[in-house]
Amino acid sequence: MAAPVTMTTPCAGVAVLTLNRPERLNALNEVMVRELAATLAALRTDTGTHAVVLTGAGRGFCSGIDVRDFGPGMLEADAPALDRMRFQETMAALPQALRALPQPVIAAVNGPCVGAGLALCLAADIRICSAAASFGNAAILLGLSGAEMGMSYHLPRIVGTSVAADWMLTGRTVTADEADRRGLVSQLVGSGALVDRAVELAALVAGLSPFGVQLTKRALHVNTDAASLDAALELENRNQVLSHATDDAAARRQPWTAKRT
């Protein structure tokens, strides 16, 4: 049986994670959840990987939780509330772990990106998609809250509160064109070139100073919610002082300083 999550290294410093249940549009089942969590945990301490691409096999990115065939861990509505809370926390831990990676993550959305798939996409640092991509917050269509797995935190910060409310309260399908127009994705790429473009971006990031890149990612996360400009500048100033003193930064400055002498 094929692995539900595969990882390849197309070039130095870049890992491509592929959700690999194409026959189910890469819907998350119990095995995939476990494998994805383990892979993200391993990447977190992998000092040789400097950028990560997340995509889906076949014609889908991720169609959410496989409600028809999740596995024995799926709980019924009459299960104890504590057990159902633990299940929800396990699912919510996936986008949390993706966001917590020290390496920048690029989501290459190649098709339907729904529910838990949308949550994973939102947790990435950069999102690009093909014209075949579509996005949806499906939980509300099933009588559940549309706010799950970090969506009510991430989505308003990316597209604004009004647009996020539109998408989350209606559960409607959002096309690639609308996602691009609203700023959910930074690039709309031809289907055949999507993963190549994501790897190209990842390689560009991976070729920079790992310390500088990781400090930049951390600052973006923290300063999105900064209490004030002064607080944001405090973190930025500290990061510049720390990175300025590294051997890597000194080596990268040398060609620029040499031009002036």
Results as ranks from 00 to 15, higher is better:
Leu120Gly: 04
Leu220Arg: 15
Val163Gly: 05
Leu204Thr: 08
Ala251Asn: 15
Leu98Ile: 11
Val53Gly: 00
Asp180Leu: 09
Ala249Met: 13
Leu94Asp: 08
Ala15Tyr: 04
Gly58Trp: 07
Leu208Gly: 08
Ala51His: 00
Ala77Thr: 02
Leu208Met: 10
Leu194Val: 06
Asn110Asp: 04
Ile126Phe: 05
Glu200His: 15
Ala51Leu: 04
Asp83Pro: 07
Leu25Cys: 07
Arg99Val: 09
Glu148Trp: 14
Leu141Ala: 11
Phe61Cys: 07
Arg197Asp: 15
Thr6His: 09
Gly71Trp: 00
Met149Tyr: 15
Val5His: 01
Val52Thr: 02
Ala176Val: 14
Ala226Ile: 02
Val109Trp: 05
Thr8Asn: 03
Ala12Cys: 13
Ser130Arg: 02
Arg68His: 11
Leu242His: 11
Thr18Asp: 10
Thr246Asp: 03
Gly56Ser: 09
Ala231Leu: 08
Cys62Arg: 01
Val52Trp: 06
Asp247Asn: 11
Gly171Tyr: 04
Pro80Thr: 04
Ala124Cys: 07
Ala176Tyr: 03
Glu236Gly: 10
Gly171Asp: 05
Val159Asp: 06
Pro4Glu: 04
Thr246Met: 00
His154Glu: 12
Ser145Phe: 00
Ala15Arg: 08
Asp177Met: 14
Gly150Thr: 13
Phe135Arg: 00
Gly58Ile: 07
Leu188Lys: 08
Ser152Ala: 14
Ala116Pro: 10
Ala116Leu: 13
Arg84His: 12
Ala139Phe: 06
Gly60Lys: 02
Asn137Phe: 12
Met32Glu: 05
Asp180Gly: 04
Gly48Val: 01
Ala245His: 12
Met7Ala: 09
Ala51Ser: 06
Val222Trp: 06
Ala138Gly: 10
Val53Pro: 04
Asn137Ala: 13
Met7Gly: 04
Leu242Lys: 02
Ser209Trp: 05
Thr18Asn: 04
Ala193Gln: 12
Thr6Arg: 07
Leu122Val: 10
Met7Gln: 08
Ala133Trp: 02
Trp256Lys: 09
Glu148Ala: 15
Asn29Met: 09
Gln88Pro: 03
Ala251Glu: 13
Arg238Ser: 07
Ala139His: 11
Ser243Val: 14
Gly183Arg: 00
Thr45Met: 03
Ser134Gln: 08
Ala15Glu: 03
Asp225Lys: 03
Leu142Trp: 08
Leu19Asp: 00
Leu144Glu: 13
Ala245Cys: 14
Arg59Pro: 06
Gln240Lys: 10
Trp256Phe: 14
Thr161Pro: 13
Ala116Ser: 09
Ser228His: 05
Ala165Asp: 15
Arg21Asp: 02
Glu30Gly: 12
Leu17Gly: 00
Ala226Thr: 00
Ala77Lys: 07
Leu98Gln: 04
Gly111Thr: 04
Thr39Arg: 07
Arg24Lys: 15
Ala124His: 01
Ala198Gln: 00
Asp230Arg: 08
Ala138Lys: 09
Ala38Asn: 09
Ala15Pro: 01
Leu17Phe: 11
Asp177Asn: 05
Met151Cys: 12
Gly71Met: 06
Gly160Trp: 06
Arg127Cys: 03
Ala251Lys: 15
Val105Thr: 00
Pro4Gln: 02
Gly143Glu: 01
Gly111Leu: 08
